[in-house]
């Protein structure tokens, strides 16, 4: 019972935090509206016109396919990057030789601007969704790599010894000992990689013209349609905010329950509405 109430009050607490976020975003909207009032629709369309344009695009059936396409490109690249970066990172964390071998390559990859990758990807894959996915993989994999490497490298030797003393089987060793520790390093890396993958996907689509939100943006640019361009931006931003607050942040909080008191701060406030 207590447990359920604790969970419920924490969920309420989390949802209530949305009001603070809304206040911040609404103030930004006010600034946007002021910019519109000062510079006119051609430079900066009003927030309400932009939302109306977004709704209209949704009604025309242009919004959803583009969002699905971009999401597919971004997620496909992200999953591949997580696998490649995670596995290589874990190897680099576990073996000194692998770290010597892979770390400089990861550093190099991180240093190459994403836009350079887009150009190369277009030359290699042409104007298809594959170019976007590829760019996402090569730009986000090094981030995941670093997180995974650090997570494995910092594993507590005492815990490993304890697990060995209890004759813990391999899968359980990974699941109960290695993963929870690694996640505290890996999750922030995965979160930033996921957010980045959307932005990269849109950029690659914009240059390749192979559909998706980026393509929509490119079309709006050609037509000098600021309202539509801004509406597409709003769509990306909405996706990112939804991703952050509906997926990443709740997961982050769930993973961190075991640190909840140590973090101090808000815990006394989470006891909830009775």
């Amino acid at each position: 019972m207590n447990w359920v109430r604790d969970r419920a009050s924490r969920a309420l607490d989390y949802l209530w935090g949305g009001w603070g976020a809304a206040a911040s975003l609404l103030l930004l909207t006010a600034l946007w509206e002021a910019g519109h009032a000062a510079y006119g629709t051609l430079v900066l369309p009003s927030p309400r016109d932009t939302v109306a344009a977004l709704v209209r695009m949704g009604g025309d059936g242009r919004l959803l396919p583009a969002v699905v396409e971009t999401t597919g490109n971004a997620l496909g690249g992200f999953v591949a990057a997580s696998l490649v970066g995670g596995v290589l990172g874990a190897m680099a964390g576990a073996s000194d030789m692998m770290r010597r071998l892979l770390q400089p390559i990861a550093t190099l990859m991180l240093g190459i601007p994403a836009i350079a990758w887009v150009v190369l990807a277009l030359l290699w894959f042409g104007g298809s969704g594959l170019a976007a996915s590829f760019t996402v993989v090569v730009t986000t994999a090094p981030i995941v790599f670093s997180g995974a490497a650090q997570g494995v490298r910092t594993l507590d030797g005492d815990l490993r010894r304890m697990a060995r003393a209890f004759r813990v089987p391999g899968p359980m060793l990974v699941w109960d000992v290695y993963l929870p520790h690694m996640l505290s390093y890996l999750f922030p890396a995965l979160a930033s990689a996921l957010a980045l993958s959307w932005k990269i996907a849109v950029m690659a689509e914009l240059l390749s013209g192979a559909g998706g939100i980026g393509d929509g943006l490119a079309t709006a640019r050609v037509q000098l349609d600021t309202v539509k361009a801004l509406a597409w931006v709003l769509a990306v931003v909405g996706l990112l905010l939804a991703l952050e607050y509906l997926l990443l942040e709740p997961v982050r909080r769930h993973l961190q329950t075991w640190r909840r008191e140590a973090q101090g701060g808000d815990s006394a406030m989470t006891r909830g509405l009775l």
């Binding site: 005492d158 010894r161 304890m162 004759r167 359980m172 109960d176 520790h181 075991w258």
Partner: peptide, 26 residues
Amino acid sequence: PVFVFQDPCLLPWRDARDNVAFGLKA
């Protein structure tokens, strides 16, 4: 055979009961 170390070596991400049950899970 079973060990008890100077450092309790508990898993920080498991509550007390799941830590006690760790060996049983293994």
